[in-house]
C-alpha cells in the first residue's frame, strides 16, 4: 500500500522532471535544431525586405509568457537591426513596452539611431488606436515612450501611417494579439503579418498560415532556437546563445521524452491492472 502511495505521488514526477531538465543544462549540451518551414518563412521574408522598409513589431504578451516569447522577440529584433530597415515597436499588452526595452537593451543596435531608424510607440490601448494608426500615427501617439513628441521623429515624418508597413510581426500570447492585425491590417490593407506564438496557440494559427493570411509562425522557444541558427549562419557576429533558446533545446527534448514515457507507462499500468481485476473476477 505504502509502495503504491509513493508511485502515485505527483511530487515524484516533479523530481524526475527537474532531474531530466537540470542534467542537460549543467552539461551545457547543445544540439542543432532542424529548421521548420514556418520559421524559415519569417526569416526569409525579413531577409528579402527592400532597404528602408517599415516593420512594425508588436509585443502582445506579458511576463508570464516571457520564457517562450522573449527569446523570439530578441532574436528577431536582432535580425531587424542587422538589416537596413525602419522599425516601430508597439504593444497591445500593457507589459509590452517594458519587455520592448529589455529586448532593445539585450541586442546589438549597431549604428541605428533612435527616432530615425527605430522608435518605441508603446501601448495600443484599444482597437480604435490600432485602426487609427494605420492612417495617422501622430494623432494616436502624440508622444513616444520616452516622452518625445512623435511629430519631431524623422521615422514618423518618413512613415506617418502604419499602412506603409511592409510587415507587422506580433509576438502573441492571447487576446488582443494576432486577430486584431489580421482583421484590421491584413484584411483591409494587405499588410503582411507574421506571428511569434506561444506553443499552446500555434495549432489555432495554422489555418491562417495555410490560407496565406500570415506569412509564417514562430512556435515557442523552439522557433527562437531555429531562428538563432539561421541568423548565425548568415551573420556570424550574432552569437549562438543570444536569446537563450538554444541552450534550452536539449532539456526540452529530454523533458518531452520523460512525458511520453510516463504516458506510455501509465497506460500500460492501467491495462495490466484492469486485466488483473478481470481475471480475479
Amino acid at each position: 500500500m505504502r509502495k503504491m502511495d509513493i508511485a502515485s505521488d505527483p511530487r515524484l514526477t516533479y523530481v524526475l522532471l527537474i532531474l531530466v531538465i537540470a542534467v542537460p543544462i549543467l552539461t551545457h549540451a547543445v544540439l542543432p535544431v532542424p529548421v521548420t518551414d514556418t520559421t524559415r518563412a519569417v526569416y526569409d521574408f525579413i531577409e528579402n525586405l527592400p532597404p528602408s522598409s517599415l516593420v512594425v513589431v508588436s509585443f502582445d504578451y506579458s511576463t508570464s509568457t516571457v520564457p517562450e516569447l522573449q527569446p523570439q522577440a530578441t532574436i528577431v529584433a536582432q535580425h531587424l537591426f542587422l538589416r537596413p530597415l525602419k522599425i516601430l515597436f508597439v504593444a497591445q499588452w500593457i507589459d509590452g513596452p517594458a519587455l520592448t526595452d529589455a529586448v532593445l537593451e539585450a541586442i546589438d543596435r549597431g549604428n541605428k539611431i533612435y527616432g530615425t531608424d527605430y522608435a518605441t510607440l508603446g501601448y495600443i490601448p484599444n482597437t480604435a488606436t490600432l485602426i487609427g494608426m494605420t492612417a495617422d500615427i501622430q494623432s494616436f501617439f502624440p508622444v513616444d515612450t520616452l516622452g518625445n513628441p512623435t511629430q519631431n521623429l524623422p521615422i514618423i515624418k518618413q512613415f506617418p501611417a502604419t499602412r506603409q508597413a511592409a510587415l507587422v510581426i506580433t509576438f502573441v500570447a492571447g487576446e488582443p494579439g494576432l486577430s486584431a492585425y489580421l482583421q484590421y491590417w491584413e484584411s483591409r490593407l494587405n499588410i503582411p503579418v507574421a506571428a511569434g506564438s506561444v506553443a499552446a496557440l500555434a495549432p489555432g494559427f495554422m489555418p491562417f498560415y495555410n490560407s496565406q493570411q500570415i506569412i509564417g509562425i514562430l512556435i515557442s522557444i523552439r522557433a527562437a532556437a531555429e531562428y538563432e541558427f539561421l541568423e548565425h549562419a548568415q551573420y556570424s557576429q550574432v552569437p549562438i546563445g543570444l536569446s537563450g533558446a538554444t541552450s534550452a533545446m536539449v532539456a526540452q527534448s529530454t523533458s518531452h521524452m520523460l512525458i511520453v514515457l510516463m504516458v506510455v507507462v501509465g497506460n500500460v499500468a492501467y491495462f495490466v491492472r484492469r486485466r488483473g481485476k478481470e481475471r480475479s473476477k
Binding site: 522532471l17 509568457t65 517562450e68 530578441t74 506553443a199 515557442s220 522557444i221 546563445g241 526540452q252
Partner: peptide, 27 residues
C-alpha cells in the same frame, strides 16, 4: 504544444536557479 510551452517555462526557471551562464540574463 501546450506541454511544449509549459516545459519552456520550467526549463528557463531551472536554468535561472542553477545560475546557468547560457540563461538570457540581459534579455
Amino acid at each position: 504544444t501546450t506541454v511544449l510551452g509549459r516545459m519552456a517555462l520550467i526549463i528557463q526557471r531551472i536554468q535561472f536557479l542553477l545560475g546557468d551562464a547560457a540563461f538570457p540574463w540581459r534579455a
